[in-house]
Structures are given as C-alpha cells and as structure tokens.
C-alpha cells in the first residue's frame, strides 16, 4: 500500500470520526445532510458485498466493516436518536436524492467490468458515491452558519478523494495490470465536485473569517 492510499483511507476515517464526535458528544447533526448519509450507507452496502466472497487483507476487512457500521449508525442517529434528530435541518435538506439512484443503476447496468450481480453493484456504488456529496453541498450552501466540525468533515472527505486520485496515478506507474477505468472516471468526477468547496474553505481560512458559501 502506498502513502497516498494510506493517507486517503486515514482522512476518510477521520472524516467519519469527526462526524461521530459531533453526533455523540455535541448531540447535534446540524448542517449534516441525512440524504448524503443515506446515500453513503447504500454506497458501502452495495460495494462491500465482496466481504462475503473475497478476502483481501485484515486491514481491508476491518476498514470495510468500519465504513459500513459507521455509515449505517449515522443514519440511525439522525433519524431515530431522540436528541440528535431534533437538530437535523430537515426543511433545508430537500435534495431529492433517490432521483440520483436510478441513473446510477442504469449506468451500472450499461458500463461495468463484467455483467454479474456483484460487478454491477460495484459499478453502481462507484457512480453513486461520485454524486452522493451533492445533497451535503447544497445544504452547506443554504446554511448561513457552517460550524467548524461540519466544515472539517467535508474538507476531510474531499481530501480523501484527492488522495485517492494521487494513489491511482502512483499505482498506474508502479504496478503492472493496474487499470480501473470505472473507478478513475467516477473518482475524478467526485473530486471535481469538491473543488468549489475547497476554494471557499481556503479563502475563509486564509482571511481568518467564518466559512460561508455564496448563495
């Protein structure tokens, strides 16, 4: 495993920890999009079906279980926890996220590495992950005051995606037979979606003012 991949996985892990910290200790999910969290739960459930068929490493299995368990428990907290759910910005979080799922499924049926159930689900999870952040970005834009933890959560997620792109470039040049077009294209699309957020985040950091996205 190269340094970019490890750093990418760690920023992903930290992003989840930041979100769990906000939910568990502050008992708040203000500014967090339930729509995005539901999409992530679906992304990991459909991608990690190979937990039952392929063993890669202990690291791989543990990380998969962490991302599965955390994404499902975050959705549960936001929907059902009696304190946390009250802080959910339901009226602002109106993105019709299920509309993203059908085109992703159709695309997965058309473009996959092999036409089998697991491979179609794998491609679907990649297409869906590419757009899963959209409800969160829309919610951020609508929220007047973005708190630090929410800003850091999205920053860490974006960093994770950018590091994975570096990991692919590194692997392409150092490994033979390492080609994953579906992962690359959907991953690059996903990373580009964060570009705008990055821009405003670093502007606010540089000028030492609170993060606010233009309406």
């Amino acid at each position: 495993m190269n340094i970019f991949r490890l750093a990418g996985d760690m920023t992903h892990l930290f992003s989840v920890l930041v979100l769990l910290l906000k939910i568990h200790t502050i008992k708040s999910c203000a500014g967090i999009s339930l729509k995005t969290q539901e999409l992530y739960a679906i992304v990991f459930t459909t991608r990690y079906l190979d937990l039952f068929t392929t063993y890669i490493s202990l690291y791989n299995t543990i990380m998969k279980l962490i991302f599965l368990g955390s994404s499902i428990s975050i959705v549960w907290y936001m929907r059902h926890h009696k304190v946390v759910r009250r802080s959910y910005d339901k009226d602002q979080d109106t993105f019709r996220h299920y509309l993203l799922m059908l085109p992703c499924l159709l695309l997965a049926l058309l473009i996959n590495e092999k036409f089998t159930f697991l491979e179609v689900m794998w491609a679907f999870s990649l297409y869906l992950e590419a757009v899963a952040i959209l409800p969160q970005l829309v919610l951020l834009q609508r929220t007047r005051n973005i708190d630090n933890l929410t800003g850091q959560y999205v920053l860490l997620l974006g960093a994770y995606r950018a590091l994975y792109v570096l990991n692919w470039i590194y692997r392409y040049f150092t490994e033979e037979n390492y080609v994953h077009w579906i992962t690359w294209v959907s991953g690059i699309v996903q990373t580009l979606l964060y570009a705008d957020f990055f821009y405003y985040y670093f502007q606010s950091w540089k000028n030492n003012v609170k993060l606010q996205l233009p309406a």
Partner: peptide
Amino acid sequence: TKDSAVKDEL
C-alpha cells in the same frame, strides 16, 4: 485482461 485487476481499494 487488464480490467480484471483485484479490487483491493475501499
């Protein structure tokens, strides 16, 4: 084929 590389990423 090249496309059948192992899916070892998360």
